[in-house]
Amino acid sequence: MSVILKVENLKKYFDVQGGKLHAVDGISFSINEGETFGIVGESGCGKSTLGRTIIHLYQPTSGKIIFENKDITFISKKECRELLRKMQFIFQDPYSSLNPRMTVIDIIMEPLLIDGMKRKDARQRASELMEMVGLSKMFETSYPHELDGGRRQRIGIARALALEPKFIICDEPVSALDVSIQAQILNLMLELQEKLKLTYIFITHDLSVVKHISDRVMVMYLGQTVELAETQELFSNPVHPYTKALLSAVPSIDIDEQQKREILHGEIASPINPQPGCRFAARCKYSTSRCKTDDPQLVEIKPGHFVSCYNV
C-alpha cells in the first residue's frame, strides 16, 4: 500500500488577543491510499483546524504536508485549485457552510462550473449527485434554510463528491443526522470508497461511528497527538489516560447497564501561549511532577501503537 498523505510536525498558530493560539501544535502522521483515518478528541482540540490546514483553507505556520509524494506545504493559488480536484472537504457545520442565497442545485453545481464544466453537463451531474446522496428532486430549487439539518448535510456531501476527488476530509459529516440516515450516509461513503478507491480523513465525536468506519484512529488533545493506533487495538487497549476517559464516557443505550463513567475534573489548559508540560496533566489522575514540566513525546509502544505519556 502506498502513502498518499504525509504530515510532518505540522503547526498552525493563530494570532489572538493575549498571544499565539496553538491550534495545531506539531502533528505527524501518514495515511495510506484507500485508508480511513479517524480523528477524535476534545471539542476545540484542533481537529477542524488540522483538516483545514491540510486542504489549505489555512496557511500552515510550519511543518510539512506531502500529498502524492509532492510537497504541498506552501503552494500557489493555482496549484491550490488543482489540489481541490483531488482533495475535498465536507464541512462540520451544515448551517453556515452553505451559501444561503444559492439554491441547492446551484450549490452542488458550483465546483463543477469553477472547474470549467459546461452548464448543461454540470446540471445533469448535479442531479445525479443529488440522487446518489438521497436528496429528492423537489429540493433542487430550495434554499438551504428551508431544509432540515440532515438534508443540508447531504448537500455538503454531494458538493464534495462533485469533482470525484481521491481524498476527502470529512469533518463531522454525520453528526447532524439521525441514526437511520447516518447509517445510509456511512454506507454510501463506504460504497463510494470501494468503487472510487477513496481515502478519508474522518473527524467525529461519535466513537461508535469512528470504530465502525476507521482503519486507524488518532486521538488529539489541545493541538497534539496523544495516541495513535489501529482501530481495534485502540478500542481494546487504550493507554493514554485521556483516551481511557474518552472511551469510558460513551453513553450506552442499555438502560440497565450502570456505567462507571469518568467525569474529568481539573483546570482545562488554554491553547493560548501554552505552558510546557503535558497539556492533559492538570486533569489527569496519574500525573506526576515531571508531567507538569516536561513535554512527553509520541513513542511507539507496540508496532503501530503510539502514545504520548510518561506513565506507560
Binding site: 447509517a183 445510509q184 461508535s208
Partner: peptide
C-alpha cells in the same frame, strides 16, 4: 428500526442497517 441502525448493532460486518426508503414528502 432506529435501534437496529446503530453502529455496533449491525450483524452484517461493515454495512449498517438503515431503515429502508425515506420519509414521505411532507407536502
Amino acid at each position: 428500526g432506529l435501534f437496529d441502525a446503530l453502529p455496533g448493532n449491525s450483524l452484517s460486518g461493515k454495512r449498517l442497517k438503515p431503515i429502508k426508503g425515506s420519509m414521505p414528502d411532507p407536502t
